[in-house]
């Protein structure tokens, strides 16, 4: 075609916030709902902490104080990981399908908003609220430092696990939201995927591999270790156990006993395997989601 009319040049200045993120956050934080949810969440965490404290409260010596600190840290971290596992997909499962159901999707797709910005805006808005939930629990977790028994490195590892869980499981919700039309189906599929990948698959692999494990470390045990590292809960528990026992954070050299030889094999801690595995899955899911949103309807 000749005689094309040139469209007006892009005028948006660099550094302006993602409009979808601004809109979503405005909607999410408006009214009392967000603050009621935060308050309820903190009350729940507070109750758990109180029960842990009362279990140790009768006769606290120096050693018991350390134990109290560790237990408090573990309980809060596990609750937060469970929350991230099961709340993150719920925050994003309606992100794209909800726009379709509200009949606003086409309005968005005829603007100049790139598919990438739409997807990242939805993801970031869900994550921002998740991060808020994680951050408001930091003062409670900090009590563990007053009581002792927890190292800063452990807290950093716990935070990494939490962030990776929130990002990855939010990406699962977003992915299903882009491939199915209804939010209901997207939510169901997201939870099935989360349960399969984070709970069923690691347990199933462990059961299948368990009979092959002899004394000492073997390749079967190695695979089972990798499988257990996929689940946020087992990854967190095993990591914490290994840190507590050996004071190491990244990997250790394990002796592999084969029938004829003995070899040294580096074994990464579960939090590293977990982080790498889920960040790779997240990258794949996000790129598929973006291409789904970018594609013209056929």
């Amino acid at each position: 075609m000749e005689n094309t009319i040139q469209p007006q040049p892009c005028r948006l200045s660099v550094g302006e916030p993602n409009p979808v993120l601004v809109k979503e956050l405005r909607g999410r934080m408006r009214g009392a709902r967000a603050f009621i949810m935060l308050t309820m969440y903190l009350l729940l965490l507070g109750c758990f902490m109180l029960s842990v404290y009362s279990a140790y409260a009768d006769d606290l010596t120096g050693a018991d104080m350390t134990e109290l600190g560790r237990t408090t840290f573990l309980v809060i971290t596990l609750i937060e990981i469970l929350m991230a596992t099961f709340i993150a997909p719920a925050f994003t499962a309606g992100a794209i399908s909800g726009e379709r159901e509200r009949q606003t999707y086409e309005l968005l797709r005829t603007t100049l908003l790139p598919a990438r910005k739409l997807v990242y805006g939805k993801l970031l808005s869900a994550l921002t609220y998740m991060f808020l939930l994680i951050m408001v629990a930091v003062p409670l977790e900090s009590l563990a430092f007053i009581w002792g028994g927890v190292m800063v490195e452990e807290m950093v590892v716990a935070l990494v696990l939490l962030l990776v869980t929130a990002i990855s499981f939010a990406a699962i919700g977003l992915f299903f939201s882009s491939i199915v039309r209804s939010t209901h189906s997207s939510t169901v599929l997201s939870y099935i995927a989360v349960l399969l990948l984070a709970v069923v698959l690691p347990i199933l692999l462990s059961i299948l591999l368990a009979p092959g494990i002899d004394n000492g470390m073997s390749w079967t045990a190695y695979l089972m270790f990798l499988a257990l590292s996929i689940s946020p809960i087992t990854a967190a528990v095993i990591t914490e156990g290994l840190i507590e026992e050996n004071i190491l954070y990244f990997w250790w050299d394990s002796l592999f006993y084969n029938p004829h030889t003995t070899t040294h094999v580096p074994v990464p801690l579960p939090w590293i395997i977990y982080t790498l595995f889920w960040l790779a899955i997240t990258a794949i899911l996000l790129s598929v989601t973006i291409s789904r949103v970018r594609a013209q309807e056929k």
Binding site: L12, S13, P19, V22, K23, G27, L107, T111
Partner: peptide, 19 residues
């Protein structure tokens, strides 16, 4: 859940119009 001006402001931002 958006106000009328917010609705237009949002879409104007989607059309890359500076704040």
């Amino acid at each position: 859940d958006m106000k009328v001006w917010e609705y237009l402001d949002f879409f104007a931002a989607c059309y890359e119009i500076p704040a």
